[in-house]
Amino acid sequence: MRLYDVPAPAKLNLFLHVTGRREDGYHLLQTVFRFIDLCDMLHFERSSDGLVVCDHEIPGLPAEENLIVRAARALQQATGAKWGARISCDKRIPAGGGLGGGSSDAATTLIALNRLWETGLNRRQLMELALPLGADVPVFVYGQPAFAEGVGEVLTGVDLPERAYLVAQPAQHVSTPHVFTDPGLTRDTKSIKMSVFADWVLRHQLQAKGGQAKQTLESGLNGSCGVFFGRNDLEPVVRARYPVIEKALAFLRQNGICARMTGSGACLFAEFVTHEQALLNQQKIIGKIPYCGDTVPVIEAAWACHGLLDHPLRYWTKD
């Protein structure tokens, strides 16, 4: 049995507040996760030998530490499944960009093999297997946009309007541990209630329906420039440590695009009311991207993406 072209979507953190730090060193967060249609594609073939083999190699990382392999073996161990799997992955989400590609691959592996091996775990059980793999993995199993608290594992579904995003990848790798241990990182943002964010979304949705969308589409500018909810508390640290990201943000601003960093970076995003707006702005910056030195562009790649209302595999798992 086989499953081909199984999507693992990227995520955006629409905001990211650091509200504290536990005694064990883990940071307490509040954020909203949204999936976008920039996806890795995974392919699974069931085998009878019990072996898990993945063709996606990560330089410097032993095969047994690959999140895809770890997810498959976690499912085997939890269920006693005797099946194995041959797994391949077409990577489209840039690694180390704050888009959750590795976490999404792990979640898609849990969901797909739960079906392929007929192990029958429900969503809650899969989420319990997901958390030890990484703080972002459970939200991909959860399957819908979510308000997250704790270390990112306490999830509550949120309704988000249809939106599109320009996602830009600066030519910079960001070390997440270095960001979270930086002495300049604030850890005292006041916690908010989810209803505060929900009310903000509704208010701005009504503004868009009132004609703002048409006006911004005609001007070709970002419909939500300057009206992001909250902030990303990691962004000031990253901008100070990594000048390329500061240059990428400045370049986008110079072209009328107000962007924010997702996760711990390095990727940046801007929200639009329509996908056509995102495409217009993507086309506007292509060919104008400045260079760091003589050969390295400030922005390596840019995508115009749809915001997803649900994870594409949400209904592969029973609640």
Rank of each mutant, 00 (worst) to 15 (best):
N66K: 07
T274F: 09
C39H: 13
L206P: 01
N114E: 14
G263A: 09
A304N: 13
A171N: 15
P9F: 13
V158S: 07
E149M: 11
A171S: 15
A302L: 01
A248H: 00
F269N: 05
K209S: 03
D294F: 00
G256K: 12
G102A: 05
I36W: 03
A208M: 02
D182P: 08
G256L: 06
Y4I: 15
L67C: 08
V179F: 08
A95M: 14
C54W: 02
R163S: 12
G223L: 02
L133F: 09
K214Y: 00
A278E: 06
V32K: 02
A148C: 03
R92H: 14
A74M: 02
R124G: 07
L67S: 08
D90H: 11
D37I: 10
N122M: 00
L38E: 08
A8G: 03
V139A: 05
G100M: 01
L28A: 00
M194W: 03
C292K: 14
A168C: 15
G263F: 04
F35G: 02
N222H: 10
V141C: 06
R260P: 13
S219H: 12
R253T: 05
G102W: 08
S224Y: 13
N13I: 11
D199I: 02
C54S: 04
T317G: 05
D37K: 06
N281L: 01
N222S: 14
R123T: 04
G210R: 07
T189F: 06
K247W: 00
F272N: 09
S219K: 14
T186H: 14
N66W: 11
G80V: 14
I299W: 03
P177V: 01
R203T: 14
P183W: 09
E149D: 06
L42T: 04
L249K: 04
D24K: 06
A71Q: 02
E218T: 05
R2E: 08
A81V: 14
G287Y: 14
I289A: 05
R34C: 00
A208L: 01
V298I: 01
P94T: 09
R46E: 10
N13K: 09
E276A: 10
A146T: 13
H311P: 02
V18W: 05
A72P: 12
Y291E: 12
E65Q: 07
V273Q: 13
V298P: 00
L61P: 03
H27W: 07
F269M: 11
Q144R: 15
V6C: 12
F272P: 02
W316P: 06
V53Y: 05
H56K: 09
L280A: 01
K82T: 15
G211F: 08
E64Y: 13
E300A: 03
L129S: 04
I68A: 01
A112Y: 12
G157A: 13
P9T: 15
D55I: 06
Q76H: 15
I245F: 03
E300G: 01
G223A: 14
P145T: 00
A240H: 14
G265K: 12
T108E: 14
V141F: 10
V32D: 02
Q212K: 05
V179G: 09
R115A: 11
P9K: 15
P236F: 02
G102H: 07
M41G: 00
D310L: 06
A112T: 12
A301M: 09
E118A: 08
K82D: 13
S104Q: 06
P177Y: 11
D40K: 04
G60S: 10
A85E: 11
L42I: 03
